[in-house]
Amino acid sequence: MKLPRQLADIGLTLGSVLLAILVTTLILIAVGAPPGEAYRNLLAGALESPVKLADVMTAWVPLSLASAGLLITFAAGLWNIGIEGQIVMGAVAATWAVRLFDLPSLLYIPVVLLAGMAGGLAWAVLAGVLKTHGNVHEIFGGLGLNFIAAAFTNYLIFGPWRPASRATMSGTAPFPSTVWLPNLGGLRVSPLALLAALIGMIAVYVALRGTSWGLKLKAVGKNSRASQLIGIDTTRQMLTSFAICGALAGLGGAIQTIGVYHRLIPQISGGYGYLAILVVLLAGMRTVWVPPIAFFFAAVGVGSPRLELRMQLDSSLGGVLQGTIVLFVLLAYGLRVRLAERKSER
């Protein structure tokens, strides 16, 4: 009974992904681009060489960390749209720590990463407190905080933290190399960052699967009224879930600064937070599906600039593909729920 249903689920998902690819293909045809060549370029742009693959993994790290965090807030039934700002504030806090200290690498890097986590955590808890104590829905609170975080970053880059030479859009002065995350053989990706993302994913998996805290979180997400009557402190659960999500997002932001750009730049997150929401939605909030889907999204993101270079297409076509897939998968689930309701009504 259970197996056919799971098979039907997978079939449904695959079908909607195919449908999304079909729609993207139609768009490609409509703009006069040969679809086969476009997809080939997209794939090659992401996977053709170790350098490209390393770039994909570099994008995969913050995306997975943010997605892991979102699994926690989604479990509690929260729409943590503010995750984008939490990544940014993680980067800001990390930069602040870089500027404040001058330590040997072995100490410097952990301190900066911890500062990044604290920055993301604080920004997330702010959104949480706005919800639990200020009655501001987390979507609106988070969205507002995202704008503030972005504006604050720009202020720092053009104000107090501008390079000695002159303020520029390219960000603060480069960090000392003692705080750079070590790379592997000249590739951009840092094994330390990969390890951090992996640990983050596993920790979230364990927390949701095997701890009483995770179970309470799920209870709150499924029915907060009953959870409260059962005796769960729903406010505390929500705030801790915001905190953990924010810490993971902040870690991603810190890695962007000391692992990728080696400085704080405007748009340091570049939309990974929003993209992570799509990843988690596409994964149906199931932890094991998040790493591969995040990889796919990262690959499309890294591969699509080549559409512009080689075929004079807009690189946002990658985003169109990502968005259409999510829409069609959600649509398929929505229709299935609706059909099930009809059936039970009869």
């Binding site: 179970l215 799920k218 209870a219 499924k222 029915n223 009224r225 009953a226 959870s227 009557l229 059962i230």
Partner: peptide
């Protein structure tokens, strides 16, 4: 609606 959490099992309760 208020007593039990739909979607969780008896053991989880």
């Amino acid at each position: 609606e208020e007593g039990l959490v739909e979607g969780l099992t008896l053991a989880e309760h």
